[in-house]
Amino acid sequence: MSVSKKVLALAVGMVTALSVALVGCSPAAPSSSSSGSSATSGAATPAAQLNLVKPGTLTVGSDCDYPPFIALEGSTPVGFEYEMMEAIAAVVGLEVEYLPPQNFDSILASVAAGTKMDVGVSSFTITSERKELVDFTLSYFDSNQAVVALKSKGYTSAMDLNGKVVGSQSGTTGSDWVNENLKAPGTVLKEFNQTSEALAAMMAGDIEAVFFDEPVAAEQVKTTYTDAEIVESIATGELYGIAVSKTNTSLREQLDAALSIIKADGTFDKIFLKYFPDLTPPTLKAA
C-alpha cells in the first residue's frame, strides 16, 4: 500500500515537473491546451475584452506555500490550484502568470485594488467578511481546520491548546478560529507570514501548535513534518473560492463558466484526484 502510494506520489511529481517544464510559468510560453479551448469556450465576453492587469494574461496572487494546493519547485509553482488555474485559463483563452509569493494577508486587498493581480488563488475560504471586500467564484474545494503539534507533546484535542502559545498564518481562518475559540488567559496567537514559518517555529518549540487548513496539515505531517501529528481535525465546512475584484464581474463570470466546463468534461476531477486520491471531488457550489 505504502509502496504503491510512493510510486504514485513519484509519478505525480514527475508529471507535475514535466507539465511545468512544458508549460512554464512565463507569459511567453504558449498556453497548455489552448487548441482545445476554442471549441469549449462559449462564454459571453471574449478573453480579449476582459479587463486584466496584463492583457491576455491571468495574473494570479498566491502565497505559494500551501502544499498540495500550491508550492514552489525552484521558482515555478506546482500543485492542485496551479493546475486548476492552468486548465481554467486555457478554457478562457488566457495565459497564467503567478506573481512571486505574496503575503497571504495582503492578497485580498491587492485583488480588490485590481492593479497588481487579477485573481487571488491561495486556498481562500469564502467568508462573509471577505465577500465584503472581493467577489468569489464557485467554490472548488471543501476544507476544514486542523491543529498540528509535535507528537511528543501528547495533545489530544484543540482545546488542550487553550491557554498556550500557538501559531497560525496571518489573515487566515485558522487565526480567526484561535481568536474566537481559545479564550483562556495565557493564550497567545503568534501570526506568521507563511504557514511553513509557523511550522518551523513549532518544530523549534517556540509555539505549541499551528492552526491551519486540514488538507494541508494532512500533507505536511505526512511528507515534511513527520515528527508532528494532527491533534484534531476541526469540522468547519469551509469552501475555497477564487477571489476576484468586485469591479471585474465579467472576469468572475468567465472563471465560473470555465470552472463549470472543466468540471463537466472531467478535467477538474482528474486534477483533483491526482492530488487528493483519497477524497471525492466536490461539486462546484456558490457560497
Binding site: S106, L108, L133, S170, E191
Partner: peptide, 11 residues
C-alpha cells in the same frame, strides 16, 4: 507584529 496583525484583520 502588532501592526501586521491589525493590518491583517482590517485590510
Amino acid at each position: 507584529m502588532f501592526a501586521k496583525s491589525m493590518v491583517a484583520s482590517t485590510g
